[in-house]
Amino acid sequence: MVKRGINVTETPLVITVERASLGQEQKTKDYANLHSILKEIREKNEILGFILKGSAYAAIDLDHNEDLAKFAILVSQLANFSKQVLNLHEEDFVRSVVLEGKELKVLCLNIRGNEIGIMMKKSNDDKEILNKILS
């Protein structure tokens, strides 16, 4: 089996986009911290990819380039859907969303304004991954 490296340059697709001017030190720190956690999870847990969208940056790291658009849309739709559904039950905040299909699983969460989407195989333990991110 091919071992994935920690370095983002070793993964098939890595995009880092500057979305706004810097100056929000804490937010940048949070983003950087989450990015390194996600890279670590990607290596150790063999997830299929992740998307991280902060207030200033966004990063996408996926096994298959062709999934990029679909995955980005799915994460965004899941975030909207869960907000809508939980608001109906007077829950004003979404902790996490887990969607399972036939073979894949997607975990979405929002940490201090950083939107995260993780694509994994159905056999992966989403709770373990969630706990790693939240720890």
Binding site: S82, Q84, V85, E91, V97
Partner: peptide, 30 residues
């Protein structure tokens, strides 16, 4: 909720197969 689910399926899942979906808030889960 049915309307929201219909819209999610239509926009994101091409084969319409959602096996499970869990949305967790601070106090409740759907």
């Amino acid at each position: 909720i049915a309307k929201a689910l219909a819209s999610l399926i239509e926009q994101t899942v091409t084969d319409g197969r959602i096996e499970t979906l869990t949305c967790q808030g601070p106090d409740r889960k759907v």
